[in-house]
Design a protein around this nucleic acid. Sequence first.
RNA 1: GGAGAGGUGGCCGAGUGGUCGAAGGCGCAGCACUGGAAAUGCUGUAUAGGGGCAACUCUAUCGAGGGUUCGAAUCCCUCCCUCUCCGCCA
Length: 429
Amino acid sequence: MLDQRLVRENPSFIAHELERRGMKVDLKHLQEIAQQQRDLEEIRSRLQAESNRIGKQVGQLIKNGIDPNSAEIKDLRHEGNAIKKKVAALEEKEKGVVATLKEQLLRLPNLPSPRCPNGRSEKDNQEKRRWGNPRNEKNLKTHWEIAEKIGLFDTERSARISQSRFVTLINQGARLERALINFMLDLHISKGYKELLPPVLVNTASLTGSGQLPKFAEESFRCNEDELWLTPTAEVPITSFHRDEIIPFNQLPLRYVAYSPCFRREAGSYGKDTRGLIRLHQFNKVELYWFVHPEDSEEAHTQITADAEAVLQALELPYRVVEICTGDLGFSASRTYDLEVWLPGAGTFREISSCSICGDFQARRSSIRTKKGKSTLLLHTLNGSGLAVGRTMAALLENGQQADGSIKLPSAIVPYFGSNHLQPNEVPN
RNA sequence: GGAGAGGUGGCCGAGUGGUCGAAGGCGCAGCACUGGAAAUGCUGUAUAGGGGCAACUCUAUCGAGGGUUCGAAUCCCUCCCUCUCCGCCA
């Protein structure tokens, strides 16, 4: 959420910054509402002060022994009642104004960082660097072709269980997924991250706090009978882990790592990536999340990205780092680096991690502050995948494929998986 | 699901209609004392939004929302949450 004061005092700045995102917004109306809200509050609070004064006066008089039924007291009561009527009318109006204001504020995305490069779309994202040596042989298989041969997962039967875009991992597939989750968690924990295993059913306030609601309701699965949603990312519960808190300055930064299944409706992506592990309604992810002092957030962004990269490097997976331009920036982010892993079977780089700095955007929505001396201020939040597990498995399959149909696995995963390779399954599923 | 108890400041805990943002204690910070510390003493110690250069000041907040009243932490209604016992269950 954007600062209400900024809306009031400098709406043209906001409009200009949102234009960098490709949004054309007229904030004149919103500014008026914000101003109106403040004016109403001012008038109302002045009346309330008057009302309080009368209340105290009556109390004092009665205490001093004046007859509660005297004319003097009666007059004060009348006066009090008159003010109360005025306040009630103002309050009702103010409530409506506040609701409208909040509703509209919650739908505005974060302002892009001054460092975020301008651009209109995905096409204008900037490649920053590459790591590793991508394989480029012809006739490399896609991960779903490989997986079918080895018997790692079953999508057809999963549709029977659920719908399309769900997967059941089988045998070595299931084992490898577990191994990857544990490997990633241990790697991050060894760097000082604190592990959380949060609920995956989250309430509306949580989704609003991190920015998924109210604008992207159609992207999340919702429970019918309860005010609960399936979380689309562990970023949501982690943000709300500290909602409405003031975290002492000396406790920052707080760095969390959390594994969670993630649920996304993927509305509007029908027909895209229909095969394999790339785009599912349910997938596993290990998420990194930082709460930092505002002054430290730029540096933290570099570090959280490096921590995500460390997973790819340990797994010997070639990737590139892409800086997202203003036109492609996520709703809550002010600046983002995507990590894209090389998928030789598909012959493309695919996003496997997105590392964003959200500034005070989520902190304001979730009311998470820090305290330095006497002054409290909103802190900054950052998140990054470390990594999307299904996509990591896809990358391992495509990058590790051998001429004989087996898959060579990186040594880092051996202690977790128990083997350095995968063999085609002899037994049909 | 049934029965009961309860939600007050960073924590504990008092407060059942009148100047209560809220006693007391703990914790924390500063100062004094000390060679240094402990102990002790004094002072301070919520958040948000307005106004003011500032000192300061106004409003709101005692789980949430309504209501009664000149006045509500205190009375009434609704909801949420927590705890205990029983039932059920992984």
